[in-house]
Amino acid sequence: MIDLNPAPRLSSLAEFALPEAAQSDSPTNDPFGLRTAIARATRAVPDGVLEAQKKRVKMLRKQIEQLQQRARKANDRLAMVQGAARHRSTDAHTQLLSAARAQAQAASSALSMAQVALFQAESALIGSEV
């Protein structure tokens, strides 16, 4: 029968283990901090990914500004339609009011989703810079 896990081979691989797998991480075992540097390098994010994340955060901030303007305009339109006292009893006013409410709600929802996306992108950016 073939032994797939020979003991000498496993013990020789133990010296290349990352610090999380090592039994003792004292400075006497690793005077130059090589294991720590290797562990950081293996977890590091490439520069292209970091730049792409920064670009996405910038794009989302710009999109949020545009959505805020759109939401303000929709809310202004809703206030204008609600304030039209002369035609309150007509079906046309009811339809305009319904459309203005829907537009304001859609703008608010889009803004909320963009803010969540920005939060997630910033969280990912913070996590990758560490």
Rank of each mutant, 00 (worst) to 15 (best):
I2Q: 11
D3S: 11
D3V: 11
L4P: 15
N5A: 12
P6F: 06
P6I: 03
P8K: 09
L13A: 12
E15Q: 10
F16N: 14
A17I: 00
P19E: 02
P19N: 06
E20P: 03
E20D: 07
A21L: 00
Q23N: 03
Q23L: 11
Q23H: 04
D25R: 15
S26C: 01
P27L: 07
T28L: 05
T28V: 07
N29C: 03
N29A: 09
D30W: 01
D30C: 00
D30L: 00
G33N: 12
G33L: 09
L34M: 09
I38G: 02
I38N: 05
A41T: 09
A44H: 02
A44C: 03
A44W: 01
V45Y: 04
P46T: 08
D47S: 10
D47E: 09
G48H: 05
L50D: 07
E51V: 10
E51R: 08
E51D: 14
Q53K: 13
Q53S: 15
K54N: 09
K55H: 13
R56A: 05
R56L: 11
M59Q: 15
L60S: 02
L60W: 02
K62A: 15
Q63I: 03
E65L: 14
E65F: 07
Q66L: 13
Q66G: 13
Q66R: 12
L67V: 07
L67T: 02
L67H: 10
Q68P: 07
Q68F: 12
R70E: 15
R72K: 08
K73S: 04
K73I: 02
K73C: 00
A74I: 01
A74M: 04
A74F: 04
A74S: 10
N75Y: 04
N75P: 00
D76H: 08
D76V: 06
D76C: 03
D76E: 13
L78N: 04
M80F: 10
M80T: 07
V81Y: 07
V81N: 06
Q82I: 00
Q82F: 02
G83F: 00
A85M: 15
R86E: 13
R86K: 13
H87T: 12
H87Y: 11
H87G: 06
R88W: 03
R88G: 02
R88I: 02
S89G: 14
S89D: 14
D91Y: 07
T94R: 11
L96M: 13
L96W: 12
L97N: 05
L97P: 05
S98W: 05
S98N: 14
S98Y: 09
A100F: 04
A100K: 06
A100C: 04
A100L: 01
